[in-house]
Design a protein around this nucleic acid. Structure first.
Lengths: 142, 142
DNA sequence: TTTAATATTGAAATAAATACAGTTTAAGAA
DNA sequence: TTCTTAAACTGTATTTATTTCAATATTAAA
């Protein structure tokens, strides 16, 4: 997959962020890998190309990119995963194969849930279960 | 608040769980404190009555009670909070005062979100923002 | 009261995330 | 291009929540 570095340079500049190879690498990684990787996975994979990469940089960068809405952090159970896309969607997490799938259906009626009293700023949702692929494998016992 | 120990003894027995003072204390604590406390908060508070209480026991017991559907664990950001009630509801978390409020409105259309392909076993939802009380305090700047 | 299975305890280990101080780098000015 | 400075990066140390584990204590049933 060929992805131009220029694209990420512009994105960073648009947000008045300094352009560093580390940030470009992270954005590029998330654009290519749509698997909702963890900070550690990103670190391990990027270290191959840049042995001096620090895990602190991964955390710092992801946090900064998150502040600027360029990446999204999702908490599934005890793990934090990162997502490049920023349009609101939710996730289905298969407990069997571990795959995390985007749910693109209509956004349910959140406003109805809280009424107008509170100001909702973030909506955190994920569903957990067994995905269709795993169900078909008929390895179901429980 | 007077809460009979007998109640928790029966609950534990119904689930074929051994009745121990620690388990009773935890259930009793959660019944009284509807503030969605963390494991550590429960531990610190119960230690007053039982100095030899171990934090491992808190974790073990909460986990066991969770397995049997007697308590529910909710993850809000990086913290895990525990809840005595077991009927499905979601939460609103105020980023200003930290209070966690139950959302009792109708359950949105989860099934529509995933369709019939996947088997949904758990629904994890919380909304974050600023609660009405904090909004009224007009301490809003951001 | 005895017994065996289970629960509790407390210390040690683990893992993810954060803090920090020193070094390096990006990007604008000269 | 070189200089300058603020910001970013690195690597180690630390923190905090949780888990592991072996020894001890307790529950519940015979």
């Amino acid at each position: 997959m060929v992805i131009k570095v220029e694209k990420f340079v512009s994105i960073l500049k648009e947000h008045d962020l300094k352009v560093t190879p580390q940030r470009i690498a992270i954005l590029r990684y998330l654009e290519i890998h749509r698997t909702h990787p963890s900070a550690d996975t990103i670190y391990e994979d990027l270290k191959a190309d840049n042995p001096s990469l620090s895990k602190t940089t991964i955390y710092n960068s992801l946090d900064m990119l998150k502040q600027h809405g360029l990446v999204k952090a999702l908490r599934l159970g005890s793990t934090v995963r990162y997502d490049y896309s920023t349009n609101r969607h939710h996730h289905f997490w298969c407990r069997r194969c571990g795959k995390i799938m985007d749910i693109t259906g209509d956004d349910p009626c959140w406003k109805d849930m809280v009424g107008d009293d509170h100001r909702v700023e973030e909506v955190h949702v994920y569903l957990k279960g067994v995905c269709s692929t795993c169900l078909k494998k008929k390895k179901e016992e429980d």
